[in-house]
Amino acid sequence: MTRFETRIAGYGGQGVITLSKMIITASSLYEGLAGTQTEAYSAAARGGKCWAEVVIDLDKTVKVIDYPKALEPYDFLIILSEEAAADVKPNMIKKEPNTGYLIWDNSTIQKVRAAKKVDKSLGIPIQKMAVEKFGNIVYGNSILLGVFTILSGIFSEESALETIKKFVPSSTLDRNLESFELGKQEAIEFLNRLKEGNN
């Protein structure tokens, strides 16, 4: 049993839930892995403190995830709001090779205090990039999916691209694919920095 626990936290409207649905679609529907996705279901999803969780079992023989919520420590934690950042503690993230990533948006969050104590933490100005390069914050989702695809490595790039095609309106597909590439580049650079040991 090799569970991959992902949690995304932010505020409603940022695309927290959409991103989680993209992740489960890529890994469960296209990659064929067992998975569950849950989300904040209340007024939170429309402007409050919002979260979503995805659990994927990397073992292809597993048909059903037992406990459907994400268990701490997480393999992947994405933080998109100041409020969510305040809740992060260093022991919430796995300390194992090739997993245990903390990703946060440093254009909306000034500081994630726990980030210093997490080996693999990365601040990306996601909202800023999305607005400056593509003119709308919704492209942040595709940037993050690019980052997730490379860092997590739980599904192939083809699955991720299929997912983007399924989720975005066809008129914005090109820009979404561009932002996906941008996310991938960020992640690859980050991995290189990690290898050199100067993150």
Binding site: I24, S28, T36, Q37, E39, P68
Partner: peptide, 10 residues
Amino acid sequence: DAYLGHLHEI
């Protein structure tokens, strides 16, 4: 229940 009703699975 409220949780199962909103769970996404294959």
